[in-house]
Amino acid sequence: MKNITLLFLLLITVFGCKNEKNDNGKLNVVTTTTMITDLVKNIGGDAINVEGLMGSGVDPHLYKASEGDVTKLFNADIIFYNGLHLEGKLVEVFEKMGNQAKTPIALADQLDKKGLIGSDYFASNYDPHVWFNIDYFKQFAEKVTEVLSENNPENKDTFEANKMKYLSELDELQEKVRTVIETLPKEKRILVTAHDAFNYFGKAYDFEVVGLQGLSTATEAGVQDVQKLAAFIIEKQIKAIFVESSVPKRTIEALQAAVKSKGHEVEIGGTLYSDALGNAGTVEGTYVGMFEYNVNTIVNALK
C-alpha cells in the first residue's frame, strides 16, 4: 500500500509538471510488453516515436512502474498495453491515468471473451497470454492501426500499408508453424514449462500444456506440485521440459531432479520465450521470430 501511495503522489507531481515529451511532430507512443512494442513499431514505422517500458527477459506479471516509467506515460500521446491483468502491478497506475486526459488502451479488450481461456488467477478471470494465438495478435494489429490513424490521420495510409504488410507476415508465420508442428505426432504434443503461458498455443495447435507454477509467476510452485508433475512426466514418458526466458530456471531444474530421483531422465529441451521477446536486434527479439523459434525448439526437443 505504501508503494502505491508513493506512486500516486508521483503521478500527481508529474502531471503537474511541464511536458518534456519528444516534440518532433510525431506521435509519442508508450507500450508495456515487448510483444506489443514490436507490434506497434511494425505498424507505426518511422511515423511515430515508440518507447517500451519492459525489456527482454522482463516478467510482466511482476513488473512495477519506476519514476522513469511514470514520466514516459505522462509524455505519451497514446499508451498500449495487453490487459486482462497481465501487467498486474501497473493496474493502479492505469486506473489513475484513466482520470486524466488520456486513457491507456488494453488491446485484449478487443477480443471476443467467448474465445478466451478462463482463469481464477487473474482479476479479469481470463488467461492473459493471448499473443500465443496468432489470430488474436492480428486483431491487436487492427486495433493499433485504428488508434494510430485516428490520432494521426495524415499518416493513415502509411499505417494501413504497414498493417497489411505485417498481417501478410503473420499469415506466413501461421503456415510455417503448422508445417513444423505437423511433423510431431499428436501423442508427443505435451508441453511442460515453468508456468502456463502457452495455453492459447496449446489450444491452437493441439498441445496438452502443463505449467509448474500455474498461470501467474506470482505464485510459487511447492514440493507437492513438483512431485505431482514429476509423476506425470514419468507416466507420459515425456522426453523434454522447458525453461522460460522471463522465469527463473530453478523450478524446472528442481522438476528435472525430482524425475531423476525416481530413476527416470528428462531433458531440458531449451529456453522458450513466453512473457517477453528475446534481445533487441536478434531474430527472437521480434514477435514473428520468437514464435518460430519457440515452435522449432519445442518440436525438435519432443521428437
Rank of each mutant, 00 (worst) to 15 (best):
A65E: 11
K186M: 10
E169P: 04
S168C: 04
E154H: 00
V177F: 05
L170N: 05
Y121T: 15
M97V: 03
P104Y: 08
D120K: 15
T145I: 02
D77L: 06
T145P: 00
Y81F: 13
K113E: 15
G88N: 15
D171A: 10
H85Y: 14
E175N: 14
I117V: 09
F159Y: 15
K102T: 12
I78T: 09
D171Y: 09
S168P: 03
Y136K: 08
P104Q: 10
I134N: 04
V91L: 13
E187W: 01
N162D: 05
I117P: 00
G115T: 14
K156T: 09
A65I: 10
V91W: 08
E142D: 15
F80D: 05
E150K: 15
G83I: 00
G118M: 10
R189C: 01
A106Y: 03
L116W: 08
E95C: 02
V177I: 13
L84W: 05
E172F: 11
A108D: 03
T158W: 01
Y81N: 09
Y121R: 12
K138S: 04
L84S: 01
D109P: 10
K156L: 05
V93Y: 11
P104G: 11
E87P: 09
Y166C: 08
F159Q: 07
G118C: 05
W131T: 10
K113P: 09
P185M: 07
P153Y: 04
A161K: 15
D127H: 03
K186D: 13
V180M: 13
L116C: 09
L167H: 13
G115H: 14
D135C: 09
L170Y: 00
K186Q: 14
K188W: 02
H129K: 00
H129M: 01
E169W: 06
K89A: 14
E92P: 13
I134C: 06
V147W: 01
G118K: 15
K156F: 00
L86F: 08
V177G: 06
N99G: 12
E154K: 10
L148A: 05
I78P: 11
N75M: 00
D120R: 11
L86Y: 05
K176L: 12
D171W: 07
N152H: 11
M97I: 11
L107R: 07
E87G: 08
L170R: 07
K89F: 11
H85M: 09
G115S: 14
A101F: 09
T145N: 10
N75W: 03
L84N: 04
K138E: 14
K186F: 08
H85P: 03
K188F: 02
G98D: 12
F140G: 02
A76G: 07
Y166G: 07
D135Y: 13
D171V: 07
V180R: 15
N125W: 04
K72E: 07
Y136L: 04
G88Q: 15
I134K: 08
Y81V: 07
L73P: 00
I190C: 02
E154M: 01
V192Q: 06
A106E: 09
K163R: 15
D127Y: 01
